[in-house]
């Protein structure tokens, strides 16, 4: 698929039903689903900004070209995984052509984090992920976020981002941005989740759509 077509695909259907932004929930590694990521922030963005959002994630396969119709996708999970060749190819095209990925290890799952970092490095090189400082615009789009509050004591954590053409296109947290307390049947059992994740996710979505 040529970049131009991709770009058009990304911008034209940026809005879903009645002009609302659709957010995707990735199915990756064949059959892994991104469960346990609360969609409450979609409502928050709608309430706090003029951005119209669909209130639920739409399941979308990373290997499917339908991915290119959705401007913002989330990815989460537990345990190891490996992307298929087609999925790697799609992810690269998606991010290089305007798509945005919010990725987070479910409940600070180390195995998932390592897999995600490994996959991203395999696609974009070893130094692709950088810490996002707290003074970055992304922390000021909707809410002013001064720190990332962890559910357990620990060292300060920072989000990591992959920047493309001056714009962050991947935001990733190994500590968990899932807001699992608002997600049904999800358990951050002992993990070190980021507690103000709802505000942060709302900021990230606004950043992705406005930058």
């Amino acid at each position: 698929m040529k970049p131009l077509i991709l770009l058009l695909a990304l911008t034209a259907p940026l809005c879903g039903k009645e002009g609302a932004v659709e957010c995707g929930n990735l199915i990756y590694a064949g059959t892994k689903t991104s469960k346990c990521f609360s969609d409450e922030f979609l409502t928050t963005v709608q309430q706090k900004t003029s951005i119209a959002t669909e209130r639920r994630f739409k399941a979308v396969k990373l290997a499917d070209d339908e991915l290119f119709k959705i401007p913002f996708v989330i990815m989460t999970g537990e345990s190891d995984f490996s992307l298929t060749a087609k999925e790697r190819e799609n992810l690269k095209k998606y991010l290089e052509n305007g798509g945005f990925l919010l990725a987070s290890a479910s409940c600070s799952n180390e195995a998932w984090s390592k897999s995600f970092e490994r996959e991203l490095k395999a696609i974009f090189g070893n130094d692709c992920l950088k810490d996002i400082p707290l003074n970055h615009d992304i922390f000021r789009t909707v809410f002013t976020v001064k720190d990332l509050k962890l559910s357990h004591a620990g060292p300060e954590t920072l989000l990591k981002g992959f920047t493309r053409n001056g714009k962050i296109v991947v935001v990733y947290s190994p500590e968990g941005l899932n807001d699992s307390s608002h997600a049904e049947g999800c358990c951050c059992c002992g993990g070190n989740e980021i507690q103000n994740s709802m505000e942060i996710n709302a900021n990230i979505l606004a950043y992705a759509l406005l930058h």
Binding site: S181, H182, A183, E184, G185, C186, C187, C189
Partner: peptide, 20 residues
């Protein structure tokens, strides 16, 4: 409550539950 389904730790007894 549905948000507490499948959560651990969860403790159930004959008279109720305490979760998470």
């Amino acid at each position: 409550p549905s948000l507490k389904h499948s959560l651990t730790p969860a403790v159930f007894t004959q008279s109720g539950f305490v979760i998470g």
